[in-house]
């Protein structure tokens, strides 16, 4: 099974945010989506998730373009719904709504939810809201999961734990995970493919090994170096 994005175009106020993006994403792999603010990462994610309708192009999953969005769980940067519910009540609600039997106890622990699941969402910090958002994305139990800056508010140990968890999810449950992240240091082994967008165009979509072979003159180590070689820009700053 694969997700095929072909000639995707999306314009906002006459500006091409996505300018003919084409890519193939396969199940059982983790994709790192890179690009500066405004490169089109979020728009591409929203198009795949069905939140945004592209002006042109097609998105096909499992050989059909019908109901692709139903196969995708998109983790928005923050979870701001149900402000007057406790975090555990929100999770209980979604567990009922999804009617899922999937065991997410490990993820619950990694995200530190047991320590603050009794607080109301309106009192939760940005990091806590993000944790809820990540947890719910997995609770939806979709084959394709898109995560937006999942590592941003985690300490180093938690980052590693989440990385191992994601690797396990991909291998064991044959998921496809697309991650938008500016934090890649120490997490390189998670990403099977690196996808780079610049000015709405997809300029790279390859395995890390392929990219290292292609860009031998990288001045910086790791994915940051590859990114610099491809785009001439330094990876970092705020999420787009």
């Amino acid at each position: 099974m694969e997700l095929i994005v072909k000639d995707l175009v999306k314009k906002y106020n006459g500006v091409n945010v996505l300018d003919g993006v084409s890519a193939i994403f396969e199940m059982g792999y983790c994709y790192l989506l890179l690009g500066q603010n405004g490169a089109g990462k979020s728009t591409l994610s929203k198009c795949i998730a069905g939140d945004v309708k592209p002006d042109a192009g097609t998105i096909v999953f499992n050989e059909t373009s019908q109901h692709v969005q139903e196969q995708v769980a998109l983790q928005y940067q923050f979870f701001s719904s149900y402000q007057h519910l406790k975090i555990r009540e929100v999770i209980a609600l979604f567990t009922t709504l999804t009617n899922t039997k999937v065991d997410l106890g490990e993820l619950y622990e990694i995200l530190g939810l047991p320590t603050y699941d009794h607080i109301l969402l309106k009192n939760a910090s940005g990091g806590q809201r993000k944790a809820v958002s990540i947890y719910l994305s997995f609770l939806l139990n979709k084959p394709i999961i898109i995560l937006d800056e999942p590592f941003a508010d985690l300490d180093l140990t938690k980052k590693k734990q989440l990385m191992f968890y994601l690797q396990d999810e991909i291998r064991r449950r044959n998921k496809m995970i697309i991650i938008i992240s500016h934090e890649v240091a120490g997490l390189e082994e998670l990403f099977d493919y690196v996808v780079i967008l610049k000015d709405g165009k997809l300029i790279e979509n390859n395995t890390q090994d392929e990219l290292y072979r292609k860009y031998t003159e990288a001045k910086l180590p790791g994915i940051e170096g590859l990114y610099y070689e491809v785009t001439g820009q330094i990876l970092g700053g705020r999420a787009g």
Partner: peptide, 16 residues
Amino acid sequence: DMKANKTFQWIQRTGV
């Protein structure tokens, strides 16, 4: 409020 903070998108994906 639910519409503004994307709750409907979340609910839609639960399959309810």
